[in-house]
């Protein structure tokens, strides 16, 4: 039995969990190749043109997984009480099922609005398709969560250990940040400069929770809470020198989160913020120009600030954000 794992969307959050889980149960996993032009084109062909880039890319990955017995598309409805992921992630298995000429999907429903027992059952039922031993399934799941924890800790430590140069925080969904094809190689471009990068993964989950629960109304999308909470925390504390907010043109949750984040950026002006809106037509050259302008502005600002002019005007001089089209 070969199970295909699309390297897109929530792959960037839970890959270590699922891969370990399947392998412990003796199931071979096949990962789709890194995003590329063909994958995008295949995805664009089978999705409505208005849907967000990450979902298009996801469909491309699914299509790249032709020689497997099943494709793993978990239906992640909710990962905590009181909040959902995103409607499109809720409907993802159905979107894949509706695409012609694909192997069947393996789509357990993860829905914490229905409680922990529902979750345990979902995991058991998934494992039971490959093993008749409940103990083995339980152990496989345990190994999976351990692998995921290890990975998350490592990410957190990586973020904290970074020193020197400018500190730039990137707020976005992980699939935007780490899929270099979506982000137009943003990470690499930044790393070329003397810059260390922070993401929400380097923050304690508690910090994010505290920030978002201070909003007049709690956000009901978990992953959007991470985006907004991280931006808020950095804006308030000044723990980074600048924030790049990367969002997909047709992203529903981000279209509203953008208002929250930019509103806070106006209230806390010490940390400059640049919003970068991307879609499949975004050009690398344009991104590079904006990125350079933004980093230059921050460097200038830092220089002025370190000159300590007593009139206090200097820092204002360089304030403001570079707005991406």
């Amino acid at each position: 039995m070969k199970v295909g794992l699309p390297q897109a969307l929530l792959h960037y959050k839970y890959y270590h969990l699922w891969e370990t889980f399947f392998n412990e149960l003796g199931v071979e996993t096949v990962l789709s190749p890194a995003s590329n032009k063909q994958i995008l084109n295949a995805g664009v062909k089978s999705a409505p043109s208005e849907i967000c880039l990450p979902v298009k890319i996801f469909l491309g990955h699914v299509k790249a997984l032709k020689d497997v017995d099943k494709i793993f598309v978990p239906r992640v409805v909710s990962v905590e009480k009181g909040a959902y992921t995103c409607p499109k992630i809720l409907g993802l298995p159905d979107i894949v099922r509706g695409t012609e000429g694909l192997p069947p999907v393996l789509a357990p429903t993860i829905d914490f609005t229905k409680g922990k027992i529902h979750f345990a059952k979902a995991i058991y039922n998934l494992g039971a398709q490959f093993s008749s031993s409940p103990l083995k399934i339980f152990k496989a799941y345990q190994a999976g969560t351990k692998a995921l924890k290890r990975h998350e800790l490592k990410k957190q430590e990586d973020g904290l250990s970074k020193t020197g140069g400018l500190k730039i925080g990137i707020v976005s969904h992980p699939y935007n940040i780490y899929d270099s094809f979506i982000s137009l190689d943003l990470l690499k471009k930044i790393k070329k400069e003397d810059v260390s990068i922070q993401t929400s993964e380097s923050l304690d989950k508690k910090i994010i929770e505290d920030e978002t629960s201070s909003l007049p109304k709690e956000l009901f999308w978990t992953y959007e809470k991470e985006v907004v909470g991280t931006a808020l925390h950095w804006l308030k504390t000044g723990k980074v020198d600048g924030i790049i907010y990367l969002l997909s043109f047709a992203c529903g949750p981000d279209s509203l989160a953008q208002v929250l984040i930019e509103d806070f950026a106006q209230q806390y002006q010490d940390v400059p913020l640049m919003s970068l809106v991307i879609d499949e037509h975004s050009a690398e050259a344009g991104l590079l120009t904006r990125l350079e302008a933004f980093l230059d502005m921050i460097k200038r600002r830092k220089k002025i600030e370190s000159n300590h002019r007593p009139d206090g005007l200097s820092a204002n001089y360089a304030r403001g954000s570079v707005q991406a089209a």
Partner: peptide
């Protein structure tokens, strides 16, 4: 009117409040 998601409608009024105040 409000709502508890997952569609955007439930968060409209929060956003509209910010935009109108601005």
């Amino acid at each position: 009117m409000g709502g508890w998601g997952p569609c955007r409608f439930g968060y409209y009024s929060q956003i509209q409040k910010i935009v109108l105040k601005r």
